[in-house]
Design a protein around this nucleic acid. Structure first.
Ligand SMILES: [Mn+2]
Ligand SMILES: [Mn+2]
Ligand SMILES: [Mn+2]
Ligand SMILES: [Mn+2]
Lengths: 219, 219
DNA sequence: AAATAAATTTAGACTAATCTAAAACATTTT
DNA sequence: AAAATGTTTTAGATTAGTCTAAATTTATTT
């Protein structure tokens, strides 16, 4: 069963919403894809017909095992391409997402496997997100948001939860990239701004919006 | 102006037919793309409307300067991807065409330029076809078909004019790959079969169908 | 120069994906 | 428990691309 790029994008969106929210609703999906509720409803019907999702009218959708597998295949392609573009072709971590949005729909299994092999079967993409293996197995990381951590902690930045170019460029400027060891100097109650010191780099103050999208692991 | 994959395929087909035949007809196009004449007519109308081709009813089509440039962009992508898949990811020359058929529609200019740079601005793809440069300039090779050459000649195989996997696999088995120096031992008048000796390899007999699709340059 | 054949275009219909406007259903407020 | 609000679905259109069948135009025979 070969899926259209549009169908793949819906599946991917549903998969991601599934991890974020309790129930995946029509409006959620429409918003995530920048489309309208009626369009989402139409696609939901088609996906349900193809047994990729379950759907109870007015009550939201859920992925079937088949749909989950399909979504992971697309995410695998996306993240492997991102890493390939970064590691092999030298693109920056803020450039690779947009390109991967197109490349993820190229459907040639041998190509993806070869890229995986070329990269040495990597576990994470340039943003710290886990890459599903050929069987669709994915390391469910449950890192915590920097925003939930308290002053005084020592931690390492392991991933980011936003692909926005502006966000990634800003992090880079602040020396807050994947793998960086940091010390949390302070957290301001009023606006949730945080003072962070990346190892061997000057301390910086970051907003709640920024901190929320940075995932860390305590040292 | 962004073109759909379908539109790009039509443009590419028209470009190639233009080089092969005197007039590019509706049926030619339909046949080349495995579609029907009415479908081709519809697309012809749209391409003409967008000033990518010229069209006189019942009289065939021709590319405009704009259409020619667009076609070359697609061919550039296709051939650069083919070489990249071959040289970097190690795919065989009979495997790369099908993959490039999908990758050629990924439209990210910086990606193609980076691949070009990575490969060292190559002039030819794995089948000996010239790669248009970023300005759309292409080395119009006017190599001759092996079929038109006479017994006794010494030549080098420089390109092939068919992407069929079976054709390419057969050539490989016969040691008749790009760059191979050959001696034409004999040409049989009855069926146009030819006896060819690749340097340092055993002599082989090839059919007219094979010889026709092999391009050579005399030494 | 007709008649016949072949190529091309038009007519009309279909699917996938999208939209706006309206109806139906669900939730929240009063 | 009504009323108001919000969400989801349906209705009806639109666009891109495709098809078969029929009409039109061009080319080839006779
Ligand atoms: Mn991404
Ligand atoms: Mn990523
Ligand atoms: Mn090719
Ligand atoms: Mn080629």
């Amino acid at each position: 069963m070969l899926l259209s790029a549009t169908t793949e994008n819906y599946l991917k969106a549903i998969y991601k919403l599934n991890a974020q929210t309790t129930i995946v609703t029509t409006n959620n999906i429409a918003l995530a894809l920048g489309t309208t509720a009626p369009s989402a409803t139409d696609m939901i019907k088609k996906l349900a017909l193809n047994k990729l999702i379950t759907h109870t009218k007015y009550r939201g959708v859920g992925l079937t095992a088949k749909g989950n597998k399909a979504a992971l295949t697309i995410i695998r392609r996306h993240r492997l391409w991102e890493l390939f573009l970064n590691k092999v072709l030298g693109f920056k971590w803020d450039e690779v997402h947009q390109m991967a949005e197109q490349l993820e729909h190229v459907s040639v299994p041998e190509l993806i496997e070869r890229i995986d092999q070329y990269l040495g079967y990597p576990k994470f993409d340039p943003h710290g997100d886990p890459i599903p293996d050929a069987m669709g197995k994915i390391a469910k990381h449950q890192y915590q948001s920097l925003l939930n951590e308290n002053s005084g902690s020592l931690a390492t930045i392991v991933a980011v939860t936003n692909d926005d170019v502006r966000f990634l460029k800003q992090l880079e400027k602040l020396n807050l990239t994947i793998g960086t060891k940091i010390t949390i100097l302070a957290k301001h109650d009023f606006d949730n701004a945080m003072e962070i010191k990346p190892m061997r780099k000057p301390a910086v103050t970051i907003s709640e919006a920024l901190a929320k999208n940075i995932l860390i692991q305590l040292n």
